Amino acid sequence: MNKRLDLAVDLFKEVMIYGTERVIKSIDHEIFHTYSPEQLQMLQIISKEDVSPGRLAAMQGVHKSAVSNRVKKLSSKGLVEIAGSESDQRGKTIKLTNKGKELIQQSNEVVYQYIENILQDGLEDSEIEEFIRIFHKLRNILKVEEGYE
């Protein structure tokens, strides 16, 4: 196996684990006291694309019943709505409401500000450009198209 690729994968996992932990533990904002990390992750996913419950379960690595429970809670708070799928008459699509979009925008601003503050002195502009280039490439490689349930 490629040792450099192993190291890259290990570092990627560590950044995801420790970065998530640090953000969750360090940001003292009402949003992060009101909603669970799993609910916020779900809202983030839906903010990128309207998604079916099955795909959402796969993306979060949980059973469909967990997604169903989260969707019910978020729907009762007016953050998401369930609509019929345009491509499948039996299917459902979860969408953000305007209130959900506002919450995600506010959450993103809080997180971006926090991350900017902790990284601004540690990264050069050229490193940020390289980071962006690599993560665009990784996103395109890793993004799975919907086609399973």
Rank of each mutant, 00 (worst) to 15 (best):
E145L: 11
I118E: 07
Y148W: 06
I46T: 04
L96Y: 15
Y35K: 06
L142V: 13
L43G: 00
D121Y: 14
I17C: 01
V110H: 09
H63W: 03
G91L: 05
K99D: 14
L138R: 07
G91V: 04
I94A: 12
D6R: 08
L123P: 03
L40V: 00
S52A: 02
G54Q: 04
T34S: 12
H29W: 03
R90A: 12
E149A: 13
R22P: 00
N108L: 14
H29P: 01
S52M: 00
M16F: 00
E21W: 03
R133S: 11
S36V: 06
Q89C: 11
E81V: 08
S52Q: 03
L142E: 13
I132A: 08
S87A: 15
N108R: 08
F131K: 08
I134C: 12
F12E: 01
E86R: 07
L11K: 00
Q105L: 15
K143S: 11
I118F: 02
I46C: 02
I132V: 12
S65E: 06
Q41P: 04
Q39C: 03
I132P: 04
Q44W: 10
N140Q: 09
K48P: 00
V71C: 03
S26L: 02
T93A: 10
Q120M: 13
V9H: 01
K101C: 04
R55A: 01
M42A: 15
R4Q: 14
G78W: 02
T20S: 01
G54P: 02
D88E: 15
H63C: 00
K72S: 05
L11H: 01
D88M: 07
K73A: 10
E21R: 02
S68K: 10
G19L: 00
K3Q: 10
S65G: 01
E102M: 13
E30D: 14
I82L: 06
I115K: 07
E49V: 12
K72Q: 05
N69Q: 08
Q106E: 15
D88N: 14
E116I: 06
S76F: 04
D6L: 15
N140E: 14
S85I: 05
